[in-house]
């Protein structure tokens, strides 16, 4: 569903993403794990078509800049960005009209209720707290019923109810056959629900871990530290 092939993104001389390839299939949750500065956010933005890059990205076989791919894609940015002068309801209406959605109101109501936003309908974007903005941002991404959803640190800023609901929503989407790519550096937040994890370090995918391949008793955290700490100790040994 989400296919990234030989993606390279450079900022001047700095290589933020170096020849990255990954796949997240339908009904799968793919996780991008990595320390700060690993290149996760850059990769996410490139996949969503917000940055220029070398390589190819397809969503359900369509090139990521195509109208067809955009129709299938939902994106929750790391920092919620709302329009200060639009109400919560108008944000959803804007998405519905821009995406030419039909019969969207019922689903919008459902999303608002699920994220406890039903009493905030008439609040303007500028009047919402960061957590509330994040919830609206999630609702906007999910309203077009995308079949591929990309989330950049989606749980940061959410209250416990929001975190629980979002996790449940992600599980539902996965069950419905949606492909989800989640970027995070909080391992605990994805430990219970993932299919494939790409551990990134210094702009590259250092290791791909499939849940089915992980030995019993080992956790994702162990694999993560093997890669990130292992590389550091390897480097210091080489220096010595």
């Amino acid at each position: 569903m989400i296919e990234v092939s030989h993606l390279t993104k450079k900022y001047g001389k700095l290589c933020a993403n170096d020849d990255i390839s990954l796949t997240v299939g339908a009904g799968e949750i793919g996780v991008l794990l990595g320390p700060n500065g690993a290149g996760k956010s850059t990769l996410i933005k490139s996949v969503c078509g917000l940055l220029r890059f070398k390589g190819t990205v397809t969503i359900a076989g369509f090139e990521n800049h195509s109208v067809q791919a955009k129709r299938l894609l939902g994106y929750v940015p790391e920092f919620p960005a709302l329009y200060p002068m639009l109400t919560v309801t108008e944000h959803l209406e804007f998405i519905a009209r821009a995406y030419r959605l039909e019969n969207w109101k019922e689903y919008a109501e459902e999303l608002l209720a699920r994220f406890e936003l039903d009493d905030k309908r008439q609040k303007l974007g500028k009047e919402l707290s960061k957590g509330m903005q994040q919830k609206v941002s999630v609702c906007c991404a999910l309203l077009p019923r995308p079949t591929a959803v990309i989330l950049d640190e989606p749980l940061v800023g959410l209250d416990p109810h929001g975190i629980r609901e979002l996790k449940a929503v992600l599980a539902d989407l996965r069950a419905q056959g949606c492909a989800l790519l989640i970027s995070t550096h909080m391992i605990d937040s994805v430990e219970e629900n993932w299919d494939v994890t790409y551990i990134m370090n210094r702009g590259r995918i250092a290791r791909t871990v499939r849940r089915t391949e992980l030995d019993s008793g080992r956790r994702l955290e162990d694999a993560y530290f093997e890669v990130t700490e292992g590389e550091k100790s390897g480097e210091s040994e080489a220096k010595e």
Partner: peptide, 26 residues
């Protein structure tokens, strides 16, 4: 971060009267 909500200097209370957006697509 592209968050225009926090950038706006406009702290005055805006009374929301008419709501809704029209148009389709772009």
């Amino acid at each position: 971060e592209g968050n225009l909500s926090s950038v706006t200097d406009d702290k005055k209370k805006v009374r929301v009267k008419k709501t809704g957006i029209t148009g389709r697509g772009a």
